[in-house]
Design a binder for these strands. Structure first.
Lengths: 234, 234
DNA sequence: CGCCACTTTGATCCATGTCAAATGCGGTGG
DNA sequence: CCACCGCATTTGACATGGATCAAAGTGGCG
């Protein structure tokens, strides 16, 4: 059950890896600046909210959730991250992380220790260029996500959520119609702002109408066109 | 009725202005790279969705809304921008803007033509550093906004919205309890994902319970503590 | 002064939350 | 290997917040 890895070329950290020329041995980059393929156990944290910022992470395989404390419900899910995604960049400006990251399954990540970049001997210009590229993508991505969730009914949100997962999966080089739904129904509910009962009902309804097939945590999109229609209908 | 201006030190574009040393005459920066205090009429667009990216804007005075086309309702409001805010950075990575920006009132902006930065003669390193600073703040900010809106009831959303406006206003050096609500009720409704009737009802209810005072488009927060209680209650 | 767009207020309806109970499933210990 | 327990998920019944429909103010501007 080894999870699939993304290719480096599809990874959010790639601009920086190119600069560091990490594929080469003897690149002169000191050890500990860029850690590759660190394993992370299911349930383990990458970092916690308010912890001082020190590194950005890229998911090589597996998946994670981002959570923030919430006095009413304990925790609130504010995002899911899949292989290829970059995690932690939002902590850069504030010098501390703004959410807690927890692995949804056995995963692996690459870790870039930002403070130690100057030790690499690479030109500041090249490093900064890579940072700009990474941050720019991040800004664009966040904006996309923000737009979608509010002011849609439960069916639309769920359909949009599934499509977005699938789309992210396919841009990272995986199959587009088959993917692991490793988060719990409660996690999905929290993320979409719905009750978990509603999530459950919608998923079974989608299944009964032939849009998806769901076995445990394995999801197959049977009718993408239909899902897209649901997501955009009113 | 001249709108108040933010100080440069509070502006989202400031890191770059510092690098360009724009306050000096004879700084050697060619004309047209950084335009200051361009007036924008009420209703005028800064740029439109899908238009090729060329510049980022900083609001010197006034306010704007960000809208995206929506087949069902014509347009959807995805954000409001106040004096000091940076607009357009999300277009950098994709090379095109992802929403349309329209002025809510007579306003003024500073415009930075990004493609022409190299003409300034400033060191690439300094320019890149400024870009990183700007983008980093942007990432952090977007994340903050995203988190708040979903999974809250109408009262909470409205209270959070008013508080956020006030907070942004005060961090930019304006008074915290008095501010212009220059968008229409429909705009607020679209942004918060509510019906405009609901927005109207909530505002009158807030007013009747002494939380705010609303005269036309002039809003005064009378009881911030009360509002915060509404925003976080469940 | 009068028109038109925006806003407010009222009445009704429906989607989704909430509460409750049944079912399924994985892990553990005998 | 099986029986049992605890937790996640599903399903059902009901309550309600906010959408929708309708109509009456209100204010800005020609």
């Amino acid at each position: 059950m080894t999870a699939l890895e993304v290719a480096c070329s599809e990874c959010g950290l790639d601009p920086m890896c190119q600069v560091l020329d990490y594929s080469e041995q003897g690149s002169g980059v000191p050890p500990g600046v860029l850690l590759r393929r660190q394993p992370v156990m299911k349930g383990e944290k990458l970092f916690s909210v308010n912890q001082p910022f020190h590194a950005v992470y890229a998911i090589k395989s597996g998946s994670f959730k981002a959570i923030v404390p919430d006095m009413t419900q304990g925790e609130r899910v504010v995002g899911f991250f899949l292989a290829g995604d970059l995690i932690g960049a939002e902590g850069m400006a504030n010098r501390q992380y703004s959410y807690t990251i927890r692995a949804l399954e056995q995963s692996s990540v690459c870790v870039l220790e930002l403070a130690r970049l100057s030790e690499t001997g690479r030109s500041t210009e090249a490093i900064q260029g890579a940072l700009i590229e990474m941050l720019g993508r991040e800004v664009a991505l966040n904006h996309l996500v923000t737009t979608s969730l509010i002011q849609q009914n439960a069916d639309q949100r769920m359909a949009a959520f599934l499509i977005s997962l699938s789309r992210r999966s396919v841009t990272r080089g995986f199959t587009s119609d088959q993917l692991g739904l490793n988060m719990s129904r409660s996690d999905i509910a929290s993320y979409l702002g719905l009750a978990r009962e509603t999530v459950s009902r919608i998923l079974t309804r989608f299944q009964n109408s032939g849009l998806i097939r769901l076995r445990k945590h394995n999801l197959k999109l049977l009718n993408r066109i239909g899902l897209e229609k649901v997501a955009s209908s009113r």
